[in-house]
């Protein structure tokens, strides 16, 4: 299958311009470049707006507690308090908390990768009685407010003797998260049916079609799934709070909450810890995004 190899098309940034130069004439390319200049302008302005909170969190993390709320407000600390970062790490085992989060992320990601494509494939490609009603039932899982399930689910896991373990936090992902199933169904439905029809005529089984044709072509959707699994597991506060008991098993989301005291928040340390905690999420996304770009849209170019 030559299709498979092109699915992971590298994000070659100059390829467009290069192709333009070869295919048409120089003026088109120049016009494209001027357009790019305008695009960059918009992007930089927007990026600045989106960066303000991060910059603010960063400078806040370097201030003394009194300095944060002085008048007139200051952007930069008089003397950067780098010690805030050391203090935050000294106060709670943040590295340990982040490691725990990473473990949870990996198990959940594994669970989603095993379950979601399989379930989504059935909804997207296979014909079976009851499909429509099962699909609506699947969607309805997302509509029920999570808080109402809190006590019955706790009761269930308690009866199974799983309180204090990671099981309640990872088990559900092996049964498929409806958000990701829906996402994957919608994605698979846009993949031309000719591809798997042809394979079926060649004698490929249902599972071969899923794992050799449909799944490789769904790489962008799988990437979205992994990025969101990372983000949601990383930020999930209420489940680990409810199910875990051992201080050293807490993920970073619960760890950050320890910076909010009964009588106030040590904002500088809290911001330092928050900033550190989001770095892994951003780094993962930075590297994952190349798989968002590419996929079937690049097929035609190779042909």
């Amino acid at each position: 299958m030559s299709l498979n190899s092109s699915a992971a098309h590298p994000n070659d940034s100059f390829a467009d311009i290069d192709r333009q130069l070869r295919r048409s004439n120089l003026t088109t390319a120049l016009r494209r470049l001027a357009g790019n200049g305008f695009l960059y302008f918009i992007m930089v302005v927007l990026a600045l707006i989106f960066m303000i909170p991060l910059l603010w969190m960063f400078t806040t993390s370097l201030k003394t507690r009194q300095e944060i709320f002085v008048w007139p407000p200051t952007w930069l600390p008089a003397v950067p308090q780098w010690d805030n970062y050391a203090d935050a790490f000294a106060k709670y085992p943040l590295a340990r908390f982040m490691l725990n989060s990473a473990i949870l992320v990996m198990i959940n990601a594994l669970g989603e990768v095993i379950s979601v494509p399989l379930i989504a494939f059935a909804f997207a490609r296979l014909r079976f009685p009851g499909k429509r009603i099962l699909f609506i039932m699947m969607l309805s899982t997302m509509m029920i407010p999570g808080q109402i399930k809190l006590i019955p689910l706790f009761s269930l896991f308690s009866r199974l003797g799983l309180i204090g373990t990671y099981w309640p936090l990872v088990l559900p992902s092996f049964f498929g998260n409806p958000f990701f199933i829906f996402l994957m169904v919608q994605y698979m439905r846009t993949i031309p049916r000719d591809l798997d029809e042809a394979a079926r005529i060649d004698g490929a089984s249902t599972w071969t079609i899923l794992y050799r044709i449909i799944l490789p072509l769904s790489l962008p959707a799988v990437t979205v799934m992994l990025v969101f699994t990372f983000l949601w597991t990383w930020n999930d506060f209420i489940s680990p709070l409810i199910y875990l008991s051992d201080f050293n098993s807490y993920p970073i989301s619960v760890g950050l909450a320890f910076f909010q005291g009964r009588y106030g928040v040590e904002w500088n340390m809290f911001m330092a810890a928050t900033l550190i905690s989001i770095i892994p999420v951003l780094v993962l996304y930075f590297f994952a995004q190349r798989h968002l770009i590419g996929g079937i849209s690049t097929l035609g170019l190779k042909g």
Binding site: L241, I242, Q260
Partner: peptide, 13 residues
């Protein structure tokens, strides 16, 4: 437990 989550956990339990 963190101060900000103790109530929810106790109520659920």
């Amino acid at each position: 437990l963190p101060e900000s989550g103790f109530t929810e956990r106790m109520t659920a339990t």
